[in-house]
Design a protein around this nucleic acid. Structure first.
Lengths: 243, 243
DNA sequence: CAGTGGTCTAGACCACGAA
DNA sequence: TCGTGGTCTAGACCACTGT
């Protein structure tokens, strides 16, 4: 016989996926559910934890457990490095940008292939759909390569930033490494997700025709809200084998 | 004052990241740790759960909690659609393949843009590094497009399958959608990871020059063991804007 | 304030792994 | 068999939300 909390989770999951519990609806209180299933609240919370991990249920302290709306997925389009305007643009889409002049250190220097201490421009961009953070971008360039207006908040780049697009001139090559990992503490707080939940992380390196790195970006998206899409055409396959 | 299990997790995390606890080393038993921190085992397990989520600690029932080795990351190279031979090939790399003749149904038909009931060839490939599953691929083609030898296990394709490469002739375009999501139950059991932990999922669609879909593949990798890398060159940027 | 979830305890029993 | 982790209970107290 399987553990009790599995069966409870299964039962609640069926009620949600079958539509018997509607998106947005509040579940009975944990105490009530615990009584219904004849278990303690500890066990019931164990079952609910599984549903939260599956993004079926959202817990709000002091209010209750709610069936989540199917999240509106947005697309990150590789190569260009931007959010798909068709899905990302909406009346409620906002963006906050913070720029800073920093010095290369640690993995950042490695990423940009510059010595520690090199002057960099950093842009932190957070897109929000209403109150829900949808993605966090931290974009780095050498300070003397930064397009005019980047560091002083010129509005010319707002559109690009809102879509996490590559800044400045179109680079010769873009290399994007994608992985799923747990959010770092700063990502978790910026994206308003629980610590150590999964994010889709993109590390983007743009290079000009001379091989010089013109931009490095670290993008993080909550795991269930974005797909990253990459399209490859036959003609460039040969080039991709070269390191 | 932060919750007690946070502080315990922080303390253990420090001991691991600082090297005071070595990779592979067994932690004291949960009962011993609970006594050391003067909490119950329930609370201590709560703290350990965070470290498991961060892949710092691996729990083995009946044996104990172990500091994980930094996983040897493997690369999935986009465009070609294969595992990087430099990192994926090793003396212990094995592959198991199961082929089946199935009929299109549900999302599979949508993926391949064929009607429900169309005859398909399915290949399930699981790569293992020693005893550890590293990736699961389920590759689908129309049965009459499948290269000879695929369905009867001809060894000509073993090499390609071991690297999750695209089968058959080189397609004109490859579209890969990457997302982080929780593992489905079948993925979790095949990859030997706990239910509902995160995976990096790649959905790969290969199209020939006439626009016909020649292969669809669903790839799943445990979240912390693989990076997917995509390289885009300037000359094809224009094409990528077309839907 | 009442109702909700968040944390924690002390103790019991079960399931797995190695000797 | 023994030591390990896995599950569960009954009950306490704290923290957040809305009235």
């Amino acid at each position: 016989m399987p553990p009790c909390h599995y069966e409870i989770a299964d039962d609640l999951r069926r009620q949600i996926t079958s539509g018997r519990l509607q998106p947005g609806e509040r579940l009975p209180s944990e105490a009530a559910l615990a009584e219904r299933y004849a278990v303690t609240t500890v066990t019931l919370r164990h079952a609910l934890a599984a549903l939260q991990g599956e993004r079926l249920v959202e817990k709000i302290h002091g209010k209750g457990n709610f069936v989540r709306h199917a999240p509106r997925k947005i697309l990150y389009v590789g190569g260009w490095g931007m959010l798909d305007p068709l899905t990302a643009t909406g009346p409620a889409l906002r963006i906050t940008v913070r720029s800073a002049a920093i010095l290369a250190h640690g993995s950042l220097g490695v990423l940009l292939k510059v010595p520690t201490g090199s002057p960099l421009a950093e842009l932190s961009c957070l897109t929000l759909d209403g109150e829900t953070p949808q993605g966090l971008a931290r974009i780095y360039t050498l300070r003397d390569l930064a397009p005019a207006g980047v560091l002083d908040g010129g509005s010319a780049h707002q559109e690009a930033l809102a879509r996490f697009a590559v800044l400045g001139v179109l680079p010769a090559t873009i290399r994007e490494a994608v992985c799923a990992r747990s959010a770092t503490p700063d990502e978790a707080s910026a994206l308003k997700i629980p610590a150590a939940t999964a994010v889709l992380a993109v590390t983007r390196i743009a290079t000009d025709s001379t091989g010089r790195i013109t931009e490095a970006a670290r993008l993080a998206f909550p795991a269930d809200r974005v797909d990253a899409v990459f399209t490859t055409h036959h003609v460039i396959d040969e080039r991709q084998t070269s390191p």
